[in-house]
Design a protein around this nucleic acid. Structure first.
Length: 228
DNA sequence: CAGATCACCTGCTTGC
DNA sequence: TGCAAGCAGGTGATCT
């Protein structure tokens, strides 16, 4: 959960806070870097007080920055520079252009959904938004990436952007416990078209949404609207 | 090298 | 009621 020396943080100034895919990166005055990942259930809160799931606390001039994490899948790393494995992730889902996205996908023979979740292929997309984007593009989650036409891959690229933009606007998806830094839950779960809606009618064709398992992840899709 | 599988951890929900 | 199994916004080690 923690890598690096927490004592080295004492007295430092946070120069910048940025996002690298799903990682939160803080550049410190010494030039070293604090890298955090929220995992499944992590939260970063300010002056929230501590609970049984508080894994770390950072004393700032403004108060305590608290890292809560029920399932302990989150990570904190203190290092001289952005860790190699983080720096080596694929292009950001919101920054990659359609041509590059399509070209990268064309060279991969894996199923499209696990490819979208592979952070070395594309950074920043998770399980909910992979399902929602594939629905938006009308692509079956088990479709082979390299066999998808360039126009369909461009549509997928567009669907990823739209899905993420709308989700960000809605403050994210709060299924059970996600909240932002102010403790406020998101509302995008109310607009999920397929995720968590197995058995419910597809918003496009009215047929039942199905849940299958792809690469060990729960996967939700419309068998009628999403084709290989 | 890419892809599949499993491990990590805790709590909630479901079904017998 | 009680208990076991299944499920959950993710990564990363290890195997083929």
């Amino acid at each position: 959960m923690l890598r690096g020396d927490p004592a080295s943080l004492a007295g430092q100034t946070i120069r910048e806070v940025r996002r690298h895919g799903k990682f939160i990166v803080m550049d410190l005055s010494s030039g070293s870097v604090l890298t955090l990942h929220l995992g499944m259930t992590g939260k970063l809160l300010v002056n929230s007080g501590r609970t049984a799931y508080t894994r770390a606390g950072f004393q700032l001039d403004q108060g305590e920055l608290v890292f809560e994490d029920l399932r302990t899948f989150g990570r904190i790393e203190i290092s001289a520079a952005l860790p190699d494995r983080v720096a080596a992730l694929g292009p950001d889902a919101l920054q990659v252009d359609a041509d590059e996205f399509a070209a990268r996908a064309k060279s991969r023979r894996s199923a499209i959904k696990p490819l979208l979740l592979n952070q070395r292929f594309l950074r920043g997309l998770g399980n909910i938004y992979a399902d929602e984007a594939l629905f938006g593009a009308g692509i079956h989650p088990r479709a082979t990436a390299s066999r998808l036409s360039v126009p369909r891959l461009r549509r997928l690229h567009d669907a990823i952007r739209q899905t993420l933009r709308q989700a960000i606007d809605a403050g994210g998806s709060s299924i059970s416990d996600y909240v932002d830094a102010d403790g406020v839950p998101g509302s995008f779960q109310e607009r999920h078209q397929v995720y968590g809606r197995q058995g419910a009618p597809c918003p496009r064709c009215g047929g039942p949404i199905r849940r299958i398992v792809v690469a060990q992840r729960g996967t939700h899709f419309c068998p009628c609207c999403q084709k290989r």
